[in-house]
Design a protein around this nucleic acid. Structure first.
Lengths: 345, 345
DNA sequence: ATGAAAGCGCTAACAC
DNA sequence: GTGTTAGCGCTTTCAT
C-alpha cells in the first residue's frame, strides 16, 4: 500500500508529452486547449491518479479556501450541533475547515491557537466560543491584529464584527411568561454560571417577565448552577429550602432540568402538579424525560450554517475590496410545550 | 481593522536590512547567526507582526502537519466526544486538524471528501465513521490509492490498517451477565440498527452471555431500534407485547433506554422492581435519569486520543521509511451499576 | 556569519 | 493552441 506517492504536474506533463501549462489548462477548464490534447491529458491524469496540490494553488492565489473554526465544549450537545451545521455549510460552499477546540474555556492558549490558524493562511475565522469571563475583552484587543474577516457565534464581541446569536433574553422571557400564563405565580429560576453572557440574558428574561406581570423577585428566588445534571440536583434542593412555596421553576438548560426533576421526584414533589418545570435548549431526548419536558428550543445547526454564509460573504467582499457590512443576526428561540409545565398533564 | 495584511519574509528582510535567509535562520533557530543580528531581526519580526506562512513551509518540506479527520453524526454525544479527544491530542502533538463530517452516514460524497483531503496534502487520515452497511468494503477498495497512513476508529477496516476500537461484544456480555447475576432470567434486548457493526457485536455479547448461563433465546426476545429515544419507546412497547413476562432488558444505548423507561413508567411497570434496565454509552446525564441508569461506559475521548497517537507514530515512521506495524488497539468498556438494575434500589 | 541562486507545485502573463 | 518565463513565500544548497 501507500503507492501512488505524490504525482506532480511535471510528471503528468512529461508523461503526456506536453508542457505543464497545458496540463494546468486542462485542470482548470481553460478554453484554449485542443479537444484532442485535452482528452489525452485527461487520460494521463486519471491513469496516474494525479491530484493537484491545493497547497501550491493556495500559495499562488493568496487564497486558501480554508476557514478556521474555534470552538469549545464539544462534549456538550449544543456546541457539537453547531459545529455540525458549520461543517456542513463550509463543505457545501467549497471550503475546508480547520478545527481548534479551546479546552476548559480558558484563555491561556488561545493566543497560540489564533497564530496557528493565521499561519495556515485561513481566509476567515469563525469564533464559536461562548462568552465567559474575560475572553470577551481579550479577543477584542487582538481584533486589530487579525488580517481576515471574522464572524462570531453566540456573542456580540465587537460593534465592527458580524455576529450570529440567539435572543437569550427573549428565551428566558418566553419560558417565564408561559409558566405565568398557565397559572403559576411563584416562579423560581436556576441559572447557568453568571459569568456566561447567555446565563445573564436568560436570567434577565425571567426577571423582566415577572416584573411585567407585577411579581416581586428576591434573591431567594434564584440559584446559580453550572449547567451539569449534578448541579441541577443540588441547586433544586437548595431552592426548595430557600423558597419552599415555589410552584414553578425555569431552569437555564435541559441537563440541569433533568437533574432537578430527579431530585423533585426523590423528595416526593410531583411535576407538574406541585411544581412546573421549563428547561432550555430543546434537546431531542427531553421528549422522553419523565415527565416530558417543556423547553425552549434553539436551532444550533441553523445558527452555525448562517454564520458560515455570512463569513464567506465577508471573505468574498473582502477579497474584492468591497466594504464589509457587519450586521448582527439574532435568531429567535421557540417554546415547546410538554407535560412538565402541566398543560397537557 | 484588517491591517497588518500579510507580511512576508521579504518585507521583513528589507526592513531589517538583511537577506531573507538570515530572517529564515532566525525563525528556525539556526546557530549561524550573530547574536546582534538575531536580536535586531527578532525585533523587526515582532514589530511588523510577521507570521511565517505554514503553506509555503509545507510546500517545501513535503509535510503539512495536517491530519484529515472524517467523522459522522456529530449531533450525537459519542462522535463529538471522540472528536474532542482527537482535537485535543492533535493540538498537543503540534498538528492541525481538517474536519470533514459525512452527512447521514451515506457513501455518495465520501469520494470527493477523500480527494479534497488528499489535495490538501494531509500527512495522515483518521477514519472515524461508524461501520454501516457498505462503507466498509468501499473504503477497503479505495485503500490502495491513499498515499498516507490511516488509522480507523470504531471499526476494523482492513488487516493492514491500524484500528482503535471498543470491545462491543464484551460490553454486551458484561451488561447481560450483570442482569443475570442480580437474579434476572428473562432478559430481553433492544439493539441498535443491525447494519451497524457495533450493534451486531453488542447483540452477540447478549446472546453469548445468556447461552453461557444456559438460557434459551428466541427471536421474540429481541427488537431492533434506531438509537433514538423515540425508537426506545416504540421498541419497548413492542417488546412488552411479544415477550410479556420479561424481567429485564439490555438496551444498546442510553438514549433508547431513556425512551424505554419513559414507556415503562407510562404503562405502570416499575423499574427496577418489575423490569431491570441496563443501557450503553455511559452518558454523564444517565446518573440523573429516573431511576438512575445502570450502563456500560466507554471512554470516547481516550479512544480519539489513542488513535491520534498511533496515527502520528505511523506518519513519523512512514516519513522515515520505517515499516509501519498495523496493530489494533481494543479498549474495554466498564460497567456502571445504578438503581435501574435493582442493586441499590 | 551572511548572501545568491535554485526550487517546492502550481498558474498568470506573455510570447509564438 | 501551446510553450516559456516568472513568481507565490519560504528553505536548502552552495558560495563568500
Amino acid at each position: 500500500m501507500y503507492k501512488n506517492r505524490k504525482v506532480t504536474i511535471k510528471q503528468v506533463a512529461k508523461a503526456a508529452g506536453v508542457s505543464t501549462q497545458t496540463v494546468s489548462r486542462v485542470l482548470n477548464d481553460h478554453p484554449d486547449v485542443a479537444d484532442q490534447t485535452r482528452q489525452h491529458v485527461q487520460g494521463v491524469i486519471e491513469e496516474m491518479g494525479y491530484r493537484p496540490s491545493a497547497l501550491a494553488r493556495s500559495l499562488i492565489h493568496q487564497r486558501s479556501f480554508m476557514i478556521g473554526v474555534v470552538t469549545a465544549g464539544l462534549k456538550y450537545t449544543g456546541p457539537s450541533r453547531t459545529l455540525s451545521g458549520i461543517a456542513d455549510q463550509i463543505e457545501k460552499m467549497g471550503y475546508s475547515l480547520i478545527l481548534k477546540e479551546v479546552q476548559h474555556f480558558n484563555v491561556n492558549n488561545i493566543d497560540s491557537i489564533l497564530n496557528e490558524l493565521l499561519a495556515r493562511q485561513i481566509d476567515g475565522l469563525l469564533w464559536a466560543v461562548p462568552e465567559v469571563e474575560d475572553n470577551y475583552t481579550w479577543l477584542q484587543n487582538r481584533l486589530p491584529e487579525i488580517p481576515v474577516p471574522i464572524v462570531s457565534l453566540h456573542e456580540q464581541i465587537h460593534r465592527g464584527v458580524t455576529a450570529v446569536l440567539f435572543d437569550n433574553f427573549h428565551g428566558g422571557y418566553l419560558a417565564t411568561q408561559h409558566l405565568f400564563d398557565t397559572g403559576r405565580q411563584r416562579i423560581a429560576h436556576i441559572s447557568g454560571p453568571l459569568d456566561w453572557w447567555a446565563s445573564k440574558e436568560r436570567k434577565r428574561g425571567w426577571q423582566q417577565a415577572l416584573n411585567a406581570a407585577g411579581i416581586q423577585i428576591t434573591s431567594l428566588h434564584h440559584v446559580e448552577g453550572d449547567w451539569s445534571g449534578a448541579s441541577g440536583e443540588k441547586t433544586m434542593s437548595q431552592l426548595l429550602i430557600q423558597y419552599p412555596d415555589l410552584d414553578a421553576v425555569f431552569i437555564a438548560n435541559d441537563h440541569m432540568a433533568l437533574g432537578a426533576m430527579l431530585h423533585l421526584h426523590q423528595v416526593g414533589k410531583r411535576v407538574p402538579e406541585d411544581i412546573a418545570v421549563v428547561g432550555y435548549d430543546g434537546l431531542p431526548e427531553t421528549k422522553h424525560y419523565s415527565p416530558p419536558l417543556t423547553t425552549i428550543e434553539i436551532n444550533q445547526r441553523e445558527c452555525g450554517s448562517i454564520a458560515v454564509k455570512r463569513l464567506i460573504e465577508c471573505i468574498e467582499n473582502y477579497k474584492e475590496h468591497q466594504p464589509v457590512d457587519p450586521k448582527t443576526v439574532v435568531l429567535q428561540p421557540r417554546l415547546i410545550v410538554r407535560s412538565s409545565s402541566g398543560v397537557d398533564a
